[in-house]
Each structure stands twice: as C-alpha cells, then as structure tokens.
Computed example of a mutant assay.
Amino acid sequence: MTDERSHKFSEGEGFGDPYDEFDLDPPELEVSPDEVDPVDSRVVTDLLDRQAIPSDRVSVKDLVEVGLSYMQINRFEQATETFERAARFADEDSLDAQEAWVNKGAAHGQLEEWDEAIGSYREALRIDDDSEHAATAETNLAYALWESGQTEQALEHSERAVEIDQRFPQAWFNRGFFLLERGLAEDALNCFDNAIRLGFRNVQVVEEKARALEEVGEDEEAERLAEEAEEMRKQAEQELVQE
C-alpha cells in the first residue's frame, strides 16, 4: 500500500519554483536563515512562544505550507508540531483548522503513530464531516484504523469517504482493499476499476486488482496484470537510481 493512498495530505498553495532544500522564511514569522537551522524541529514552536506573536499576526496558511515542506523532505516529527501549531492558531472549527488536523494525522501516519493519527483525523471530522477535506480525513482514518487492528471500523470509514466524494480515487482504492481482505473480490474489483478510471494507477492498485481477479477465477488477466505491475516496479526503481 502506497504512501499516496495511506497518508494523503493536502496540496497547499505551493512555494512556486522547485527548491533544493527547505528554506523556512514566511514573512509573518520573521525568521532569519542565518540565525536558525531551517529543519530544526523547534524553530516554529520556539519562535512563536518566545516572541508571543498574537494569533492575528500568524498566517495559518503559511504554517501549513511549512508543515507540507517538512513532509516533502521526510521531517515528519517537525511536520506534526507545525501542523498542530497551525491548528491552534486557526479560527476555531474553521476549514483551516480542519486542514491542519488532517495533515497532522498524515504526518503521524508516516511515523506509524496510529493512535495519534486516528485522534487527528477524528478531530478534523468533528469540525466538519462533509467538507472539502472530509473525504481525505475519512480515507486516512480508515487506513490508520486498519493498521491499528480495527478492521470493521476501517471499512465503515472507507465507505463513508466514497459517499462524501465519489471522485476521490484513493477512497475507492481503500474500499477495494478492505473488501478484498474480507473475501469480497467482485465488489473489490469494481472499486479498483473506479480508482483506475479516476487516474489512480500505480503498482499497488494493479497488484491488488490482479489479486482480486485471481480470486474470481480470471487467472489469465490476473497474470497479465501481475506482469504489468512488475514492469512498473522495475521502471520506478530505475527512475529512482537515475535520480
């Protein structure tokens, strides 16, 4: 199962041009790159506490961008702290707060801190269980519950994610995976096909679809997809080496 599927986080607004390393310098925080290590986990927290910056001077969106950048460079502990800070500074029960909680859950998921991830996703859904971030929260919550052994609840939340947004491919893939694990291969196939039609086609999706096809007796097509998945895996490995 891929990180894309298991730990979906928001896209943010982006920093524009690609960067070689993370440069923590949102103007609202007045950080000098000469004075702090840009990947120091204490930078954001200590700076805000030390200067006692009023909440109306803190850009929650900038804090979320900082957290997302930490995610991009695999600094997940720093990301959790930054997203929590963003949630605390956001207006109570706002969409900004919800986005921060969803992202905090994703960062905890990368660290396999499932209880913390589950708590973050539940907090996001408490704020609004039908918003633009709700399907992502439900999908990620389903995976975190699965990893923590709560399989029944995992399927329920994956189904809820599909109900919220039928065009969210990761939700369909999650649901298909959980159904297949319960032996419901036909239903799982429909979910995998929906995920692929919506543009979510990677090694894991193809492998799981091949497994479902094998379960329903379509061995020839299952073998073809298994070979395709292997080719996709080799290509990905080659690209990684080239990078």
Rank of each mutant, 00 (worst) to 15 (best):
A100K: 00
W101R: 07
V102A: 11
V102N: 13
N103W: 03
N103G: 02
N103M: 07
N103H: 05
K104L: 11
G105A: 01
G105E: 00
G105F: 00
A107S: 11
A107T: 08
A107E: 05
G109N: 05
L111I: 00
L111A: 03
L111T: 02
E113V: 10
E113P: 01
D115P: 08
D115G: 08
E116I: 00
A117K: 08
A117C: 03
S120N: 00
S120C: 15
S120E: 13
Y121H: 08
Y121A: 04
R122T: 07
E123D: 09
L125D: 12
L125P: 01
R126V: 07
I127Q: 07
D128W: 06
D128H: 07
D129A: 11
D130M: 11
S131M: 07
E132F: 11
H133S: 14
A134R: 04
A134K: 06
A134T: 07
A134C: 02
T136A: 12
A137W: 00
A137T: 04
A142I: 04
Y143M: 06
A144S: 12
W146F: 13
E147R: 15
G149P: 00
E152S: 13
Q153G: 15
L155T: 01
E156C: 09
S158C: 07
R160M: 14
A161L: 01
V162W: 05
V162H: 06
E163L: 14
D165Q: 05
D165V: 04
D165R: 05
A171W: 00
W172Q: 07
N174W: 02
N174Q: 14
G176Q: 10
F177G: 03
F178T: 06
F178L: 14
R182K: 15
G183S: 11
G183A: 05
G183C: 03
A185Q: 03
A185E: 03
E186C: 01
D187F: 13
A188D: 00
N190M: 14
C191A: 01
C191M: 00
F192E: 05
F192K: 03
D193I: 03
I196G: 09
L198R: 10
N202F: 11
V203K: 11
Q204T: 10
V205S: 12
V205Y: 01
V206P: 04
V206G: 09
K209E: 09
A212R: 09
L213R: 12
E214Y: 14
E214K: 15
E214F: 14
E215P: 02
V216L: 03
V216D: 01
E218D: 13
E221P: 02
A222P: 02
A222H: 12
E223H: 09
R224G: 12
R224H: 07
R224C: 06
L225Y: 00
L225M: 07
A226Y: 10
E227V: 13
E227A: 14
E227W: 08
E228V: 04
E228L: 08
E228F: 01
A229V: 09
A229G: 10
E230Y: 05
E230N: 15
M232Y: 05
M232P: 05
R233G: 06
K234C: 06
E237I: 05
Q238K: 14
Q238Y: 10
Q238M: 15
L240A: 13
V241T: 11
V241Y: 04
Q242E: 14
